[in-house]
Amino acid sequence: MAVCVAVIGKDNSPLYIGGVGNDTNTDNELSRQWLVHTALDALEERLATTNTNTANSASNASRTDLRDLYLGLLYSTDTHKIYGYVTNTRIKLVLVTSSTSPSGSNIRDAEVRTALRRLHALYADAICNPFHLPGEQITSSKFDRQVKNLLLNNV
């Protein structure tokens, strides 16, 4: 099952990091943040390679449109699997599943893709709020609730 999701801004600053369960334990939160933060390495590497590919092709614009936002499995450790998703505005969505629990290790790629797409939609809804400041952390409790719901029910 999914352990946590994160929304990361285009300048790589965290906008939202949410985990399942209401553990506010610092160590837990810390390891979660380390995981998401180090996933940025792989994300950036992916983006850099896709960029050079698109730059080479003449039909740059159409390629960007066709680019799949879902980047798939970024990397896996002994305990976790980390999936990435990048919106067209370079907002990065990261989903971490636990590979130790049976539901987490058997998760299908399509399921992760759906979950990240729904997270994208939730994010878009959240920043449509006129009182939200673009570039600031997402503090909306509704968004938090929806994301937790998504984690529990879908993935």
């Binding site: 300048d11 790589n12 965290p14 810390l30 943040q33 933060h37």
Partner: peptide, 10 residues
């Protein structure tokens, strides 16, 4: 610089 304040705090 990357505004990961939680990690920075740690």
């Amino acid at each position: 610089r990357e505004k990961w304040w939680f990690l920075a705090s740690h």
